[in-house]
Amino acid sequence: MFIIDLPYVSDLLRQTLLSNQFPVLKTPDAVMLLPKEGIHFISEKEAIEKYKTGEIPTIYTSSENSIGWIAKNLSFSELPEKVELFKNKLKFRMQVSALYPDFYFREVDPDKIEDIEYGELPKPFIIKPNVGFFSLGVHQVSSPESWEKVKIKIREEAEVIQDTYPKEVLDTAKFIIEEIIEGEEYTIDAFYDKNGEPVILGMMHHLFSGEADTSDRLYTTSSKVLSENMDRFMDFLRQLGNLVGLKNFPIHLEVRVDHSGRIMPIEGNPLRYGGWCTSAELTRYAFGFNPYEYVMLDKKPDWNTILEHHSGNSFSIIILNNNSGIAARKITRFDYEKLTGRLGKVLELRKTDVVKFHVFGFVFAETTPDHFDELRQLLHADLREFIIQ
């Protein structure tokens, strides 16, 4: 069953629901976001009963806004507990501490942050909302001076971003401080089947502009990203699944791999893939299959064949976060045409309301190996040249 919620539903997801007649929970938001005819809506009562009997084994949500409905209506099952385990960063860290006993982390109240001295923390460290989304409110601290600046910024950001998403998705009532996880960062879209075996449906390499960058500007995938990481990520997913006990469970994981090959989880996002229908759609563009269908039909990609015939090009998501230093309310227009003109092949452009969501939009692009610098240029850009005040 799909639970469709704000803020966004893609054309691919709409078409998937229409052509496959997958059941969709009937809610006011789902009715508003989906076509008037042709969707297989089911009532809340029917959805609860079918989940209870096992007729609906798997739930996929288009947005974590749906977490509240799951917690309220499926409390007879283990699902709300599993969702909370991944969504709450402190609980997640506590759960995986058996695999990483030396990793430092602690939870703090916002009003106690001011009293925490830099000297009592590991260096460098990350501070972020205990329940978060899209790297909002995430900061890296590497000096006493930066710690004082971050304290001020956290207070300012909390007032701006807290009303953007429901508290189940983004909640600045608690923060978590943890040591820096060194290494290359990746995301993994996967699901655990009815037997608890993980199935990988996609991966992305998360690139940063520098050591202090914590933004979500650029994610990229290719046959190289998949082939280099498939075996070790499968081993990691099996470890995680055995530790937590996951079945019929889609998940979007963020991990880092250090120089020795050790995999360290950053966080897990339950019952969905990349927010705003991003990573699943990138997989469709890059590798030609529909992850929404695979997770619901319990299908496994034939990765050997897929990678053997792949072009070798990179497929990327460019998230146009407002790092310009210009307040969103002072921006009259964003020049999307000028920006997309910097890329060799744009697959899709999604425009968003920067005042409401703090990003200008999302660009899906295909890039040949000899033109990868066009992505790096946007990775380092502050986007001011595309902003009209």
Rank of each mutant, 00 (worst) to 15 (best):
Y8N: 07
V169D: 06
R333M: 04
I127Q: 01
D373W: 12
I180F: 12
S19T: 15
I177R: 07
T53Q: 01
G268R: 05
F105K: 00
Q140E: 15
K87P: 09
E254A: 07
A286Q: 01
T305A: 10
Y8L: 12
L170G: 01
L349D: 03
M1I: 09
K153F: 08
L85M: 09
G268T: 06
M94Q: 14
N248M: 04
E107A: 05
V9K: 07
I161V: 14
L85R: 00
D193W: 06
E145T: 15
D213K: 04
K167L: 13
V225H: 03
I70W: 03
G38T: 06
V257N: 04
S311W: 01
P7C: 00
D216P: 10
V295F: 00
T367Q: 12
K345N: 14
A71M: 13
I266Q: 00
K91V: 13
I319W: 14
K89G: 03
R14K: 15
I188A: 02
L90D: 02
I70A: 07
K299Q: 06
I263L: 09
D171F: 08
S215C: 05
H371T: 15
F233T: 08
K45F: 06
V83A: 07
V138M: 03
E178S: 09
D353Y: 09
L343I: 14
T367E: 11
H40Q: 02
L74Y: 04
L379T: 11
L379F: 11
D189T: 09
V354F: 13
I177S: 02
E254H: 08
F92M: 10
E117F: 11
Y273S: 06
P291Y: 03
P250A: 05
L33G: 00
H259A: 14
S77F: 12
L253W: 03
S19D: 15
A173E: 10
L307M: 11
K330E: 13
F287S: 00
Y292R: 02
T352W: 07
H380Q: 10
